[in-house]
């Protein structure tokens, strides 16, 4: 059986070292936790274009830059002009910042959810994941976690920058630390409330453009509608209508919840007041997150290729 092996025609001379022989692998094989962690990290990096083509890096990096820019300016003003302007507080409260920059956050989620979720379905890469030891459920949950984590980084990073600036400007450290912790917890919840529905929409289509449009519609349109309704409700003295409307956009939902629970400064004209509405806001938030997880698991239960 000594057939001479003809060299493949496409091999360029000197480019490849031949005949090193195949080496097996006897090293450790990690369990599902380690695999899930690796999947999470790769997904998180991919959301910012890292480990992907150069073009994929542009949008997330530009958005990251844009969302940090106002925070940087605010810090600059606070540090430089604190005495002059008699500031003893952050110019924009931590919890309001995500609403101020909601357009950037929504565009990020709308662009990256399809890149992370639809991509595996469109290219059939999901088959390669399912053909590996990791469970289907784990795959779905980790993908959701990656998207949530990336959104949290985007929302949370400028807050941390403002916090650092606040400490630099000699704002009371205890008060600021308490506030930033509340704001970060809120950012986490916001990230989950944004990533969940965006992931569901992205999982329903393999067409990236369709998914982007779908997520944009859900996030931007809902926020705009809520803002308009709340504006009208304030003008017409129908505060309750505005308070209820606040539940229909993740941004106002989380901000309202922070206001009810931690008594933070509200970013909307009609924040929810009272335990009843607070409970309703909490219920909607929990429902959004768990509903998205459930819908994702349901969507993937029979995906095989």
């Amino acid at each position: 059986m000594s057939t001479p092996t003809p060299s493949a025609p496409d091999e360029r001379a000197g480019a490849v070292i031949h005949d090193l022989g195949y080496r097996g692998y006897d090293g450790p094989r990690l369990g599902e936790t380690a695999v899930a962690r690796a999947l999470f990290t790769t997904g998180l990096r991919n959301c910012f274009g890292l480990g992907r083509s150069g073009r994929s890096k542009i949008l997330p990096m530009v958005l990251l830059g844009l969302i940090l820019l106002p925070a940087l300016i605010l810090v600059g003003i606070l540090v430089q002009g604190r005495q002059l302007l008699h500031l003893d507080d952050q110019i924009v409260p931590y919890t309001t910042y995500p609403l101020t920059t909601q357009l950037l956050v929504s565009v990020f989620v709308a662009a990256q959810a399809p890149a992370l979720i639809s991509r595996d379905l469109r290219f059939g890469t999901i088959t390669l994941y399912l053909a590996r030891p990791i469970r289907r459920t784990t795959y779905v949950l980790v993908r959701l976690a990656s998207l949530t984590g990336a959104t949290f980084v985007l929302v949370g990073l400028p807050l941390l920058l403002m916090y650092a600036g606040g400490l630099l400007a000699d704002l009371p450290p205890g008060r600021e630390t308490g506030r930033i912790l509340v704001a970060l917890a809120g950012a986490m919840l916001l990230a989950a409330c944004l990533a969940g529905p965006a992931a569901v929409v992205s999982a329903l289509t393999t067409r990236r453009g369709l998914a982007v449009a779908g997520v944009i519609v859900i996030l931007l349109v809902s926020y705009t509608a809520v803002a308009i309704i709340q504006g009208i409700a304030t003008d017409t003295q129908h505060e309750l209508v505005g308070q209820i409307a606040g539940m229909f956009s993740p941004y106002t939902l989380v901000n309202g919840l922070e206001h009810v629970v931690f008594d933070t400064k509200a970013a909307t004209p009609t924040p929810p007041e009272g335990a009843g509405l607070g409970a309703a806001y909490l219920g909607v938030a929990v429902l959004t997150v768990l509903g998205s997880v459930g819908a994702m698991l349901w969507r993937y239960r029979e995906v095989s290729s």
Binding site: Y25, R29, A38, T42, P133, I134
Partner: peptide
Amino acid sequence: VHLGQMSGLPYPA
């Protein structure tokens, strides 16, 4: 590399 990790290989391996 990524799919190797998905099969349980540590990153360097």
